[in-house]
């Protein structure tokens, strides 16, 4: 069967507390912390972007897979913060990791769903027999306008997955995608920050697509929520995935292991993928994971994974997701945060 043969997550070490942002805009921190279930969020170091995050996550995935980078036939990075408007992210990554030049590379964008999109295509390549291995990555240094609600959650991180046929860590049992045109969140060219439809991003967007995709995936598989050890959904905040999951029939316990948003924020394209790596870090052979992403615009990709015996051998080979979230970190004040995120107007260097 085809499945994940290597995975890795990378989360920058810098953080800003929800309270630091709330203080800046005169909002009540406690209400926001409870309402969004967010204590802090990750911030990229001044020298980190979607490319460097992807490289580090993919390095960890390669380490866990043990495969020769030269055998990878396709590389896809899904993100809504590709550093260049024109010039691929993936080309930098392949030259940094020694992949190619005989390789297919593309950058994906589909709001927060771009990461699972990359996984979906990478998986499909291997399944079709096009190639032996393909790499799919979801990573973001997410944008949120100053003082917008998104500023509390938009964070940085990413996860990488190598798909293959041999020495599989977690088989892909089923996939499903669900897509409509729904303008709940967007960013036009040359604009620094995305805009969104406020509460319109909830029921008609997030829940409609997650539930639509989730129900269809359950039906397709013939499995029940209780057949799964874990479930992971896109995490714009702490509340939405819990609500969507329980509506589908999952318990809070099944969702908790992958609910990285509470310590990391919403890494957009890296959100449900880093939730998945957090689960893969602890999953036992034979256990199943139910995963549904969401990207505004709008659509959801769903996957059902089942861990193999091999997973236990590789979990410790690279840093685990929760260890990175709970490990050494540096807190920024709001001013430093603005500088790190490039939200201050600087003079150009000539």
């Amino acid at each position: 069967m085809v499945g994940i043969v290597g995975y890795g997550a990378y989360i920058p070490k810098y953080r800003i507390k929800t309270s630091s942002i709330a203080e800046q805009w005169g909002n009540d921190a406690t209400t926001i912390e409870q309402g969004l279930m967010l204590k802090e969020k990750s911030v990229p170091n001044i020298d980190e972007d979607t490319i460097t995050i992807s490289v580090q996550a993919a390095k960890y995935a390669l380490k866990r897979s043990g495969i020769d980078p030269q055998k990878i036939g396709a590389v896809y990075i899904g993100s809504e913060s590709h550093p260049y408007a024109v010039k691929p992210s993936g080309t930098v990554l392949i030259d940094a990791l020694g992949i190619g030049p005989d390789v297919h590379v593309a950058d994906f964008e589909f709001a927060c769903k771009a990461g699972t999109e990359a996984m979906f295509v990478a998986y499909s390549h291997v399944k079709s027999g096009n190639m032996d291995y393909a790499l799919g990555i979801g990573a973001d240094t997410s944008q949120g306008a100053p003082s917008d609600a998104l500023e509390y959650s938009a964070s940085a991180g990413g996860a990488a997955f190598i798909f293959g046929k041999e020495n599989v860590l977690a088989n892909v049992l089923f996939t499903h995608s669900y897509t409509t045109d729904t303008a709940d969140f967007w960013r036009r060219e040359y604009m620094h920050y995305p805009r969104h439809g406020g509460r319109f991003t909830g029921e008609p967007a997030y829940f409609k697509h997650i539930l639509g995709c989730g129900k269809a995936l359950l039906e397709k598989s013939g499995l029940k929520p209780s057949d799964f050890a874990y479930a992971v959904f896109h995490m714009p905040n702490g509340k939405f995935p819990l609500k969507a999951g329980t509506t589908l029939g999952f318990t809070k316990n099944q969702i908790q292991a992958g609910l990285v948003v509470t310590a990391m924020g919403n890494t957009y394209s890296g959100s449900s993928p880093t939730g998945l790596t957090a689960i893969l870090d602890i999953i036992k052979p034979g256990e199943k994971v139910f995963m549904v992403s969401f990207g505004s615009g709008a659509g959801s990709d769903g996957f059902i994974f089942e861990a193999t015996e091999k997973i236990s051998e590789v979990q410790d080979l690279a840093p685990k997701t929760w260890d990175q979230l709970n490990g050494k970190r540096f807190y920024l004040d709001y001013g430093k945060y603005l500088a790190y995120r490039g939200k201050i107007l600087f003079n150009d260097i000539v």
């Binding site: 170091n45 020298d47 980190e48 972007d49 490319i51 460097t52 490289v55 580090q56 390095k59 550093p83 260049y84 930098v92 940094a96 150009d348 260097i349 000539v350």
Partner: peptide, 20 residues
């Protein structure tokens, strides 16, 4: 050694990457 951004060449130039 890790892979990082070294500098942006202003607002419109290339992004310089390398080891740190």
């Amino acid at each position: 050694l890790v892979f990082r951004k070294i500098i942006n060449e202003g607002h419109s130039g290339i992004i310089n990457y390398g080891y740190k």
